[in-house]
Structure formats: C-alpha cells, structure tokens
Design a protein around this nucleic acid. Structure first.
Ligand SMILES: [Zn+2]
Ligand SMILES: [Zn+2]
Ligand SMILES: [Zn+2]
Ligand SMILES: [Zn+2]
Lengths: 176, 176
DNA sequence: TCGCGAATTGTTATATTATAACGTAACATG
DNA sequence: CATGTTACGTTATAATATAACAATTCGCGA
C-alpha cells in the first residue's frame, strides 16, 4: 500500500516533498528522453507548493506573476498535458484541478481522498482495492484500462479532535 | 451487489428501463414532496433514452428540438440539479455528463464502468468495494462523505468476441 | 559553425461547460 | 382573490479547455 496521507496532514518539511518530486521528475524525463523545460518545471513546482490541487487558471495566474509576463492558457495546458503523460501529475476530474503524483512511475490506483474543508488531496494506492476493482470488472466482462477514484470527506485536521467548531478553518496551516 | 451492467450491454426492451425509471422518479418525488415537472421529466427521459451519459448541452439541443422553442442552459442545469439532489441521476465528472441512476433511493457506491469505445456507462454497487473504501478511509483518519468512482475500459460488446477489428464500432446498436 | 528538421512556445481566437442576476409565471393554500 | 413559494424565462458572463498558425529554440549532422 502506497500513500502520502500521513504526510499530507501533518506538519512536515515540505521542501523535501518538492525536492523529491523534482528529482523523480528529472529521472523520469531522462528515462523517457523528454525535456523538463522551464515552463514544465515551474508548473510542476507550483503543483507541489501545497498538497491541494490547483486549477489551470490558478496555475496561469501564479506563473504569470512569477515570470512577469502574461502566460496564455495553451502554455499551461501544454505543460499539464506533458506532465500528465509522464504520470508526474494527476487530474482530479471532480475539481477540474491538478496535483502532483507522489509515486510516479510505479503502478498505482489513482485514488484520492479529498477534504471538502481545506481542499487537501492525499493519494492512496491500495492493492486490495485494485484487485477488487479488477475482479468486479472481470465479473462484468469489462476490460479495465484506467480509473478515476475520488473520495470526498474530511481530512484528519479538519474533522477535528476539535469536532468542527463551526466550519472555521481549524487546520494547521503548516506549509502554504 | 447491485448492477445494471448485464442489461446495459445486452439487447433488451429498453422501454422497460425508461418506464421503470419514471415510476421510481414519481415515487421518490411524492416521498420527498417534490414536483416532477414537465421539464424535469423530459430531462430524465432524455437521460434514459440510452445507457450513455449525455452532456448538458446535448440535453439542451434535444429538449429544444422536442419542444420547438429554444431552451436556455439555466433551464437544463436546474433540472439536472433537481434530479441530482433526489439521486435520480448521477454526474460523471470525467465526462462532464449525466446519466440516470438505476437504483435511486437505495444506498450505493456510485461506481461506473465507462466504455471508451461506445460510451456506455454501467453502474455497479459492490458492498465489498464500499467496505474496503470505508476501511481505507478509517485507516487514514479520513471521514468519508461521498465518492466518485469511474472505471474506463471496454464493455463486453466493444471488447468483442471479435477481438477489436480496429477501433471500428462493432457493438450492437440495440436501442438508440 | 552552419543549417535543417523536430520540438517547444507565443499568440489570437474560439469552443465547451456552468452560473449569476433578475424578472415573470405557475402553483398551492387559506 | 391574496399571498408566499416554487419553478421557469432571459440575458449576460464566468470558468475551463482547445484549435490554428506563427515564431522560436533545440538537437544534431553536414
Ligand atoms: Zn509536503
Ligand atoms: Zn482538510
Ligand atoms: Zn435499457
Ligand atoms: Zn462499449
């Protein structure tokens, strides 16, 4: 079972998340003879600035600010497309948003636990879930090729121990 | 385990699907003191015309043609919203499309098997999957509130005994 | 180092999906 | 009726995503 759910919801040295992601990205690019150009790297960095998925136009804003010049949507979408192809990021369909993948390259289930309160999204890969989905597909004679699994609810920080004061942000704003 | 996957991929009397859906809808509306107005019923009918999800603007086109007058997007989205609330239809996030729910009212898992070739979507509710997702959530201290589970691949018709001639449409166009 | 083809990015316009805001009509109830 | 509520009509616009084509940069062999 692979997951980054602990990490996502605890205070941690997030710089390490970013660095690790970039190392993996460089390795994967080399392996695939693809180029991690400045735009692509910037987008990947932005997606790793927090553990919350970002929309394409949020990326556009931030990248435009960073670079001083106005970046148009196609530039963003091209970078997104590239990163998706390599498996470095995922698209979260229900949010029209994108997030870095903590374990690119390895087979995994593309399952997210998305907090309705703080917006964080932790990725989980559970062999037993994959197996079960595969066997359900088999039973239905369905040739499984891909999947998008999104769970909605409250992350440990937002569920409390404080048992939801209101719907105030009670979570630890450790690294944003 | 609830599923309509057999039905979806076999020739069948689809009129029964539609009638059953409308009966359930009327019952649910009565139960909830809600009104199944002509617009809402038309949208529900359209969503049950096939086992393929339809987008809001496809619904708009078809409803406009049916009624002779031009129906604006808000009308469609209001009907969709209403039907979603009652659980009579589901939104398929990865397709920005909507489909009738074969078992509204009963608790189920909101899991779809979507054919990349013919576009059909069968709904499956598997207790063991639900249990597993619940226990995975528990382990991660995640308070599960909702889910969107979408599997992509080939339905029995499109995977064929014909073993994919090309990517021609080889499926039986039983009822569209 | 030059030049060429391929890959990447810039730019403009537009498609697609969804909602805001506000007015009007239909409905249910006493 | 009179009234409050619910649903619908209409116009405009927001938010997300892509098409099409021009300009640039990059890798690499001549
Ligand atoms: Zn982190
Ligand atoms: Zn949270
Ligand atoms: Zn049917
Ligand atoms: Zn199919």
């Amino acid at each position: 079972m692979l997951t980054n759910s602990r990490l996502v919801h605890q205070a941690h040295d997030h710089g390490r998340c970013i660095n690790a992601a970039l190392s993996r990205a460089e390795a994967l690019c080399t392996e695939n003879q693809a180029r991690l150009t400045p735009t692509r790297e910037s987008v990947l960095r932005l997606l790793w600035q927090s553990h919350q998925p970002l929309g394409a136009y949020q990326l556009q804003d931030q990248l435009s600010k960073q670079s001083g010049k106005n970046i148009a949507p196609p530039t963003i979408y091209r970078a997104i497309e590239f990163l998706l192809q390599l498996g470095l990021i995922h698209r979260i369909a229900s949010l029209n948003a994108y997030i870095g993948c903590p374990f690119p390259g390895s087979d995994h289930s593309n399952l997210f636990m998305i907090c309705s309160d703080c917006g964080s999204a932790a990725e989980v890969s559970h062999n037993s879930i994959n197996d079960l989905l595969q066997s359900a597909s088999d039973k239905a004679n369905f040739t499984l090729q891909g999947q998008s699994l999104e769970l909605f609810g409250l992350c440990p920080n937002c569920a409390g121990p404080k048992i939801q004061l209101d719907s105030q942000q009670s979570q630890d704003p450790s690294h944003e």
